[in-house]
Amino acid sequence: MNLQFLADGVVMGALIGLGAVGVTLSYSILRFANFAHGEFIAWGTYMTLVLTTAISTLFGGHTGTIGPLSFGWPLLVAGVAAAALTGGLAVALDRLLFSKLRSKGNAIVMVMASFGASMALRSLLEFIFTSRPAYFTRDIQMAVPAGLGIRLTPDQFFLIFLTMIIVVVMDRFLSLSATGRAMRAVSENPILARVAGVDVERVIRATWIIAGILATASGVMLGVTVQIRPFMGFDLLLPLFAAAILGGIGSMSGAMLGGLIVGVAEAVAVQIVGADYRAAVAFLILIAVLLVKPSGLFGVRE
């Protein structure tokens, strides 16, 4: 049996996982399901695209590529800058919209507001860039053997490696830094956190920034391996929610594992029933989790 599909599933799963970590953090700290998270992914990617083009143009297009990868350093620099900008976008959206509704204490109105914001942000991308797909690069890469008869492109190797680094950094950040501690505290018990001296508004800002950074990483990975479209984030949203709920809301490792499971399950489904119904896999996983164990694999609350 050809296991090649597993490789694509793992790469897809890694980027779903990164997005889902952002979803699970913002869900557990802000206490609502943010439907605009997909738009952070798309905006982060388009900003990376614009900045990459700008940097390359600035250097007269002579920036070359890094070793065997399909892209050069401008993409990495642009990605970092776009991640920061996307964090800023999330904070701005919170300031303009969510913070005004937060005081009213109705989570479902915030879900609705995020749904409206997602529609507006996505359509704005469509207005600016049209719905035609864009690409970081159009080069075709040669895949190299990675064992078990699986071949990976150098880009895929790099992205899996990058995901691992991000996961380790995030894990260290959450378990050891003061901000990470404060985030865990607010996620478990916001009132006690305030009593203990945690500035919840500051934690919320940090959470949005992290969500924006992870969304950008996830989107750029998708942009490098597939393509860039205004709907790219919207189409990822259901897999992200499925992964976050499967892993257990609030659990970072759960979201990452959930992402991998969803990504690989999609790849398996494509093998069995074809690509047409790929997007339904996340829905089936979601329904199964809600039926069997709504708190998810590592969840502490439903």
Binding site: R181, A196, G197
Partner: peptide, 14 residues
């Protein structure tokens, strides 16, 4: 107390 956090982390938060 923060039930999901360790005793030491409860202290550190404060």
């Amino acid at each position: 107390v923060f039930t999901l956090m360790s005793v030491a982390d409860n202290m550190r938060i404060a």
